[in-house]
Design a protein around this nucleic acid. Structure first.
Length: 227
DNA sequence: CCAGACGTTGTT
DNA sequence: GTCTGG
DNA sequence: CCAGACGTTGTT
DNA sequence: GTCTGG
């Protein structure tokens, strides 16, 4: 699973990485050292053939949901890659609304016997930003008072390196597959599903951190320090 | 047909 | 134990 | 994901 | 909106 992430990149790094442009006059991005579900972050998608960033809420709220709270009860912060084409809540989004969630890394908790779970910080060895595969939805209340764009992170079986910590990991896309994944005109489900594989073990790097990260209230650089 | 669910992870 | 909030 | 709340009545 | 269960 993937239930906590972090981002320390700047706006300039983000836009240069995905749009190949140096942004001018953009508001400065706040780092989030401890991002929990329900919080918002910039997500990359393609609209009318153009890449764009949109601020989205973590936790998918399908457009047919009665309200945001009822959707939250179903814990749609992750979507299982293996079943994404069969699930009612994900199928349409997988076909038409794929996205990339740029993150610096994420946290996983390893169970160690009966002892307290130990948190780990996971990142890429050679890249400051990882492209997490996701799907998004646009939900509007009938009264038109609420308008929520939300996303879920796709998970799959852990690769060998990550199995040491946890059985599931988020899908981290290969840079060469990003355009294919984002293309909203692409209707080749078989081809798309092939992208939802665990990334190679040797891309990843991890180390244990203190339990300070357990509480989402601790949005501080110290949560990234090795324990 | 209509009503009601629509999810993940991990653990038993 | 289970649900909600972050 | 983990942390923290989990309730009612009546009064401010 | 769409699928599953009865």
């Amino acid at each position: 699973m993937c239930g906590r992430t972090y981002k320390t990149y700047t706006n300039e790094e983000l836009f240069y990485r995905y749009l190949n442009i140096k942004p001018i006059d953009l508001p400065e991005l706040n780092p989030n050292y401890n991002m929990a579900p329900t919080q918002e972050t910039m997500v990359l998608r393609v609209v009318d053939g153009e890449r764009e960033f949109e601020l989205m809420r973590w936790g998918l709220v399908p457009f047919w949901a009665k309200d945001v709270k009822s959707a939250d009860r179903y814990s749609m912060i992750n979507a299982k890659a293996e079943e994404i084409t069969e699930k009612r809540s994900f199928k349409a989004a997988f076909e038409k609304r794929r996205c990339i969630i740029p993150m610096s890394g994420f946290f996983e908790w390893k169970k160690e016997g009966t002892a307290r779970k130990r948190p780990f910080c996971i990142r890429l060895k050679d890249e400051p930003i990882m492209s997490l595969a996701g799907i998004w939805e646009h939900w509007k209340s009938k009264e038109g008072t609420q308008d929520v764009i939300s996303y879920a992170i796709i998970t799959t079986d852990a690769n060998e390196a990550m199995k040491e910590i946890h059985s599931r990991i988020p899908v981290i896309l290969n840079r060469n597959d990003e355009a294919l994944w984002l293309d909203s005109e692409n209707a080749n489900s078989t081809e798309l599903k092939k992208l939802l594989k665990p990334c190679p073990s040797d891309w990843m790097d991890f180390y244990s951190v203190s339990t300070m990260v357990n509480s989402p209230k601790n949005n501080r650089p110290e949560v990234l320090q090795p324990a």
